[in-house]
Design a protein around this nucleic acid. Sequence first.
RNA 1: CGGAACAUAGCUUAAACGGCUAAAGCGUUCGGCUGAUAACCGGAAGAUUAAAGGUUCAAGUCCUUUUGUUCCGACCA
Length: 963
Amino acid sequence: MTEPLELKKTVNLPKTDFAQKANLGQAEPARLKKWTDAQLYEAIQTARHGAEKFILHDGPPYANADIHIGTALNKILKDFIVKSRSMMGFDAPYIPGYDCHGLPIETHVEKKLTEKGKNKNDLPVATFRRICREHASTAMNNQTRDFRRLGVLGEWEKPYLTMSNEYESETARLFGKFLERGYVYKGLRPVYWCIHDQTALAEAEVEYRLHNSPSIYVKFPLLTDPAEIDAELAGKKVSLVIWTTTPWTIPANLGIAVHPDFEYAAIEDAGEVLIVASELVGFVIVKCGIGGVNEDGERQMPRVLAKFPGSRLDRMKAKHPWIDRESLIMNGDHVTMGGEADAETEMDVSESRSRDETGKAGTGLVHTAPGHGHDDYVIGKEYGLEIYCPVDNAGRFTSEVEHFAGENIFKANPQIVEFMRENGSLLFSENYEHRYPHCWRCKKPVIFRATPQWFISMDNQNEKSLRAQALREVESVKWHPAWGEGRMANMIKGRPDWCVSRQRSWGVPIPVFYCQKCDEPVADPKIVYHVADIFAKETADAWYNRPESELLPEGFACPKCNSSDFSKETDILDVWFDSGSSCVAVLETRGETLRFPAEVYLEGGDQYRGWFNSSLMCGIAAHDTAPYRQIITHGWVVDGHGKKQSKNDGNVTAPKEIIDKSGADVLRLWAAAVDYTEDMRCSDEILQRVTDAYRKFRNTLRYALGNLDGFNHETDSVSLSEMLEIDRWALASFDEAAKKILAGYENFDFQAVYQTIYNLCTVTLSARYFDIIKDRLYIFAPKSLERRSAQTALFEMTDKLCRLLAPVLAFTADEAFENLPNQKLASVHLAEFPKVSGADNSKLLGDWERIFSIRDEVLKALEEARERKEIGSSLEAKVILRTDAETARFLQPYENDLRYIFIASQTEVHEEDYFSVNIEKADGAKCERCWNYSTRVGESEKYPTVCERCVAALSEIERSAAA
RNA sequence: CGGAACAUAGCUUAAACGGCUAAAGCGUUCGGCUGAUAACCGGAAGAUUAAAGGUUCAAGUCCUUUUGUUCCGACCA
């Protein structure tokens, strides 16, 4: 007889290298390095080579600042898709990209130059562009570092850059394509213009300061027969009264805008009739001194001859105060009551009004100069007015303007006011202080001025028009969420022609030339492609580094006048054109891995108007089709109260902080846990909850791995038919969950993935299965059938769980997978998702649902006994069930299992006509080894403190030790 | 101001077609265990479904209005 074993050492306690404490702050970077060293992304690509492709095309984040939680979320969601599709067996490449051109980088660089006492205008454009390029590179490298830290796998060594030679070349080429198809035209459009610096300014480059302007009320005589407005007005001399703070734009007046739904009044004053908005009649007569004063000095209300809606004036005609020209009356919703009439300055009037109560002004009729105002431009276009701008670069009236030609516009202001006072068209003028846009550089007031720009037409080419085609394509795209389709369609319906010109330096130049001799623009696709070829070798910097002669094909002459003297276009392309062209410049240029169209684009909801829109236009221009089959949008990350995150409010959650504190996997888990289709809340509490959930996942994995110590699934596995029923139930339950999880991945519903896995881990596994099989795993002999049965289930579930978790918990799932015994794959990310069995387990699952509902009753009774201090551990209890005959019969086959299911030492089932659970003290003594109570403790001489079950297990252990 | 979306326990989410007492997990709280231990198990409390109307036998779900929040609104990526 051998020496008795030390009991504690015969209990099969869990053992694993998978640490309980995640320590993700250190563990993740280490794993990242391992992935990089092993070229994991490339290995996945190789493994899926030849499989059906699934292409998620990355929308390029702007290479300016560091990433924030929104950009992190975006990349994480993309990674969920790429990883999950890859595990579904698709060849799912991920080529990240960066948007490198654009104004924010220019302003950033300019600011830095200013700090060094330099000025952009003193530098050659090529030098300035070089600095921009460097800045974009730096920002991009930082972002790449941060994106990789999130666990996002992709071709980070070779992302696409909108500033690369290859990309810039394709961007230019695509412009050529637009030209070829006849979508491009040159037109005028008002922009902010600094007459001092003689340059166009972007919105971001103007600042609002207080400025004094002449505020004037001017009469425009009605040309249309006034009887058409109202019979009362027949034969009268009628004028419309407008208000403006920019008298210098009067020479450019081509129209008057009225609101179709406002009520206007015709009032009689000294033999003539004036039209103003009804609501403003009192204000205007006081301001302009209309109607005379009675003996008491009170102003007399003039007679109102007629009242009518603005819609009645639509398309009637008025006469310019002094120029022999018609001014068209138009209906526009932009017209407002009081003070807001100076649309030509684009000033924020609500602000100016609150700043200055006395600043109220206006007549409800808006002087409209399409060449000098934004709303004016839009409505002018709508009504077919010329975009007329008789002001030159330096802010002087052109020769077209009689009386004031050559005059500086601001200096002409008082002269124009006097001129109109003399000819009787001026009703009133005063000084008016308001906020007015100023140049941020020279601090001088700016103007709105129409300049020539390149446009892409939305409506020409009939049924081949961009708008018509885009609307058609929208229907064939699958939108997530579904309302995206309506939103996109609305945007396309409402969008104006696409102005692709930007008067900037950092971008892709519009590859067009002008004949120096005859001014003929050379916008020829063949020339564009020729230039694009040069860009392909030298980047678009060539445009600035080389003279025209080197950019044009040899011997090129003006088709009109045969001159060979050309100048280059100075405008660059809108950055939306840049990023929009990625569907060609990336999807096609990288044809070995990608292809046009992509399967899916995934971006924030702001991109309906942005990238989704410009990409659609570019896709249609290139291939008559949308560049994407599916669009997924996500909402915005807001704080714990649903408020937007802003630095000022101090409610921002920085991804870096979350990663350092809790790990990227926690951030990823958060992204999976929330409903990304709407705004997502993120706060300390929410992250704490997610961290708790993470621990649950980790402990679930650790328990399973610990109990698989020494298990070899190839030699130790038990066949399904030999398995204990509860183990089969666990596998069947897992299968049910796996189906839902896989469907979640399929439908991009990561929340369903999260919820299902989480529920599986907490309820099915942790609270039920793991708790119940613990006794079996610990107590039975290591290689006993009972133990191996549980281990077989455990192994299978853990293996599958790692795979199902991998797209979300990219680091942790990989770590757990590594600790799975006899695991041969280098990484879980190389694995495929588990297949779910088609077996019908409904009987098994149904039976066990019933067992667990009985168990719930038992647990409640145990808790009550515990409250009465009758028991502590449930193993101290004997459970006595009284139940009806049918239930008793149902439980009969489980007679010997119930004690384990209830985690009690003994159970009895009695047939009664009612249901009850009684708890008594368990019979016998506590077994030292298994802690269950048994009347047979003490039967063994060798192991006097142990129960009959442990005696058997111990002899089994002794036997295998001897063998 | 116009267009769009959303609103269910402290938190994250459930509740096909309108149909049982609005479900779950976490957190909280109380307790158990001390062989998953900065773990594990259980009991309990916790919701006027943003508000107000309406349709209906019946509304978290359909309609209207209101409130709150977020995004877009012409050069801002």
